[in-house]
Computed example of a mutant assay.
Amino acid sequence: MTERPLDLDSVRAFICIAELGNFTRAAEAMRTTQAAISLKLKRLEERVGCRLVERTPRYVQLSARGDAFLEHARELLEVHDRALAIFGEPRQRLTIGISDHVAGPELPALIARMNAQDPQLLIEIRIGSSGDLLQSFDRRELDTVIVRLHAGRSDGDMLTEEKFGWFASSGWQHRAGEPLPLATMAEPCGVRAMAGQLLDAAGVPWTEIFVGGGVAAVVAAVMAGLGVAALAPRMLPFGAVDVGHRLSLPDLPRLPVLLHTRVKEGRPRDALAALSAAFRSAVRG
């Protein structure tokens, strides 16, 4: 007798859990409930006859068999999606703008998550400042933007809040009596403006020592020992240190990350749900 085939929706749920490391995020990515995700995984484990995921109160981890099955599960869905693509609609385009202060080292993994959600979706991503991206969004040049909270805007859905700090290279020392040397992004940059306002309010003398066209350039200046920058910890390589407390610098607030989109349904919306869930997992981690 032919064995019962695998349920592809359950396989997709297993992949989401494995990649996002969290049942809640997997539910967000698949636009369903955590209970539904748990049920799909349970059915898959019953079908294959073993536990694929080890659950603890603090984390989710693949079992040895789950780890071995993961790559085969991905291949199964890829073949399935390619087979269906020949009958599908013309390839849809989704244009996304991501703030340079938001798009960190996790960006390749986020793009991969979106592609896994829908390999037939043409994804176009632009990196820029939050202000410029919001203007492009308002001109309908972008379908979606993921940006920092911007002055004068109260719309958008909050994805997460992220901690910022005053970072320098491990060997950097501030010369007594001199203004704080600051590495910043070029205007318009909300983080740049916020950092300057907080330093002024605290009575901390400062001067721009480096202006970069992106976060990668600012990080390079910090690690080269030029000075201090206001950055999210995940943007920096190992070896950077938070010098805020040592230099008695003002505390930086947790900054919201907002999603603005006109995409409400269909395949692009499913891909955005996967991106949002993956981003929350990356920032939380």
Results as ranks from 00 to 15, higher is better:
1 M>A: 11
1 M>H: 04
2 T>V: 14
3 E>G: 05
9 D>H: 12
12 R>M: 14
12 R>T: 03
12 R>D: 11
12 R>E: 11
18 A>W: 06
18 A>F: 02
18 A>E: 01
19 E>V: 02
20 L>P: 01
23 F>Y: 15
26 A>D: 00
26 A>L: 07
34 Q>T: 15
34 Q>N: 14
39 L>V: 13
42 K>V: 15
44 L>Q: 10
45 E>G: 03
46 E>Q: 14
48 V>E: 03
48 V>D: 08
51 R>P: 06
53 V>Y: 01
54 E>S: 12
54 E>W: 05
56 T>N: 00
57 P>N: 14
59 Y>I: 03
61 Q>C: 08
62 L>C: 01
63 S>G: 03
64 A>K: 05
66 G>L: 14
67 D>Y: 14
68 A>V: 10
72 H>I: 02
75 E>I: 03
76 L>E: 15
78 E>F: 09
87 F>M: 06
95 T>C: 04
98 I>S: 10
99 S>T: 05
100 D>P: 01
100 D>F: 13
102 V>C: 12
104 G>N: 09
113 R>Y: 07
113 R>W: 07
114 M>C: 05
121 L>T: 03
122 L>C: 01
123 I>R: 04
123 I>Q: 01
125 I>T: 13
126 R>Y: 04
128 G>M: 08
128 G>H: 08
129 S>I: 05
131 G>Y: 08
131 G>V: 15
131 G>W: 15
135 Q>F: 11
136 S>I: 13
137 F>S: 07
139 R>D: 01
141 E>S: 13
143 D>S: 00
143 D>M: 04
145 V>M: 12
147 V>Y: 11
148 R>P: 10
150 H>I: 13
151 A>Q: 08
152 G>T: 12
154 S>L: 15
161 E>R: 15
162 E>N: 15
163 K>N: 15
164 F>N: 07
165 G>I: 08
167 F>D: 00
172 W>H: 06
175 R>I: 14
175 R>W: 09
175 R>V: 15
176 A>R: 04
176 A>I: 01
176 A>D: 02
177 G>F: 07
177 G>S: 09
179 P>A: 05
182 L>Y: 02
185 M>K: 12
193 A>G: 02
194 M>E: 03
195 A>G: 08
198 L>N: 03
201 A>L: 09
201 A>P: 15
202 A>V: 09
204 V>S: 02
209 I>Y: 05
212 G>R: 13
213 G>K: 11
220 A>C: 02
222 V>D: 04
223 M>P: 12
223 M>L: 10
225 G>S: 11
229 A>F: 00
231 L>C: 07
232 A>T: 05
235 M>W: 15
235 M>H: 10
235 M>Y: 10
237 P>K: 06
238 F>E: 11
242 D>F: 04
243 V>A: 02
244 G>P: 00
244 G>E: 15
245 H>T: 09
246 R>E: 09
247 L>R: 14
249 L>D: 09
252 L>S: 06
257 V>H: 10
259 L>T: 01
261 T>G: 00
262 R>F: 00
262 R>L: 04
264 K>E: 01
264 K>S: 09
268 P>G: 02
269 R>L: 06
271 A>D: 00
272 L>N: 05
272 L>S: 04
273 A>S: 07
278 A>E: 05
279 F>P: 13
280 R>A: 08
283 V>Q: 13
284 R>V: 06
